[in-house]
């Protein structure tokens, strides 16, 4: 199994440089850089990581095809490949739902858009992954892409997603992570998990009876009443890979049994350099 860690554009360049080196030394296989509307663009972050590491693979995970022109995504990676070689994976997806609202993007026929962009990117020679949470995108990803970034890390949710696979592709399970206890970052973990539920796919939420909870959490996030998220801890926990080392290891084993090829520890794990160091080739 491969292991990845996620960095975002909310980290300072100095911190990206330091944490990327730690992640490579700790033996992570991939660093995935996410795109969130209120953070700086992934390309400066990706370049910074490549410049300060030797060989670790670097992915956009994910970059939005609604915010960026597909041609810019393609050319951005071609430009970076000229300098840093073939270390890249391009993970594309619609993008963060709430962020898109602030940029006046109107989503129309996203499946078609991602299909076309995948075809365009495929000509570039860099592996293409699709970030997916709902049945239609999962079906598309497992039809046209080299891999899929699943937004689920709980075995029940992963099993549900696998039911929609058209064929076996390289599958990464991507979720907010933290080695606990970590008082400083625990609330961040809650907010990250809450963001996943709030932007959840409709079919998924219906199948797991989470529609109402998702709407409540969405309202809380909108009003920034983060302190009230604690009461949803039982639900939020299902969207994270967190706990002590033994619990995290247990989750990884469960995911491996389901055929997951990579576990990606997303933010806030990267906030804590000690947690990155603890990893050491698989916790």
């Amino acid at each position: 199994m491969d292991f990845g860690i996620n960095f975002n554009g909310d980290m300072s360049p100095q911190r990206v440089r330091e944490r990327a080196r730690i992640a490579e030394e700790a033996g992570f296989d991939y660093i995935w850089v996410g795109e969130t509307t209120s953070f700086v663009h992934p390309f400066p972050v990706i370049a910074n990581i490549c410049h300060n590491t030797e060989a670790i693979k670097v992915g956009a995970g994910i970059i939005s095809v609604q915010k960026n022109r597909c041609i810019h995504i393609k050319k951005g990676f071609e430009t970076l490949r000229e300098v840093y070689g073939s270390r890249f994976v391009i993970g594309i997806a619609p993008g963060d739902r709430f962020g898109l609202l602030t940029t006046c993007v109107v989503t129309r026929d996203i499946i078609k858009k991602i299909r076309e962009c995948t075809a365009q990117l495929n000509k570039g020679g860099t592996p293409i992954f699709i970030g997916a949470a709902g049945p239609k995108l999962i079906e598309l990803a497992t039809t046209v892409a080299d891999g899929i970034l699943l937004n689920y890390v709980h075995p029940d949710f992963v099993r549900w997603a696998i039911k929609h696979f058209k064929r076996k592709v390289y599958t990464a399970a991507y979720g907010p992570s933290l080695v606990l206890p970590d008082k400083k970052n625990e609330n961040h973990l809650r907010i990250s998990a809450a963001t996943v539920i709030a932007g959840g796919n409709r079919v998924f939420l219906e199948d797991f009876g989470l529609v109402e909870v998702s709407e409540e959490i969405r309202t809380i996030l909108k009003k920034r009443r983060y302190d009230t998220l604690k009461k949803y801890d039982r639900v939020l926990d299902k969207f994270t890979i967190s706990g002590d080392i033994r619990e995290i290891k247990g989750r990884i084993e469960e995911l491996e049994k389901l055929g997951i090829d990579q576990v990606i520890f997303s933010s806030p794990l990267s906030n804590n350099p000690e947690s990155i160091r603890i990893y050491r080739g698989g916790f």
Partner: peptide, 8 residues
Amino acid sequence: EIFSYLSV
């Protein structure tokens, strides 16, 4: 692409 180019 300009962002990646300038970053480098």
